[in-house]
Computed example of a mutant assay.
Amino acid sequence: MREQLERRAFLILLAAVTIAFGFILEPFWSAIFWACAVSVIFFPMQQLLQRKWGHRPNLNALVTLTVCMLIVVIPVIFISTAFIQEGIQLYQKIDSGDIDPRAMLMKLRDAFPIVDELLVEFGVNPNDIRDQVISAVQGASKFLAKETLTIGQNTFGFLVSLALMMYLTFFLLRDGSHLRDLLIKALPIGDEREHALFEKFVEVTRATVKGNLVVAIVQGALGGFIFWLLDIPAPLLWGVIMAFLSLIPAVGAALVWFPAGLYLYATGAWVSATVLMAYGAIIIGLADNVLRPILVGRDTKLPDYIVLFSTIGGISLFGINGFVIGPLVAALFMAVWQIFMTDFNSGHEES
Rank of each mutant, 00 (worst) to 15 (best):
A111V: 11
M106D: 14
I99M: 12
Y167H: 09
G87N: 15
R102N: 14
D116Q: 13
L168G: 09
P188M: 00
L168H: 02
P188N: 01
F83M: 05
I79W: 14
G152P: 10
Q153S: 02
E199K: 06
I77T: 09
L70G: 14
S141L: 13
L159Q: 02
Q138M: 15
E147G: 09
L159M: 07
L149D: 07
L108K: 10
V160Y: 13
L118D: 11
M106I: 11
M165C: 04
F201S: 04
I184E: 01
D116L: 15
Q89F: 12
I129Y: 05
Q92A: 12
R102K: 15
G139H: 08
M69G: 04
V73I: 13
V204L: 02
F201D: 04
L183G: 11
L90C: 02
D131Q: 09
D175F: 02
A207F: 12
N154Q: 03
R174C: 03
K107S: 14
V72F: 12
G190V: 12
Q85F: 05
Y167R: 03
D116P: 15
V160C: 14
F158Q: 05
A163F: 14
I129M: 07
E121A: 10
K107P: 14
Q85R: 10
V120C: 07
I88G: 09
D175Y: 08
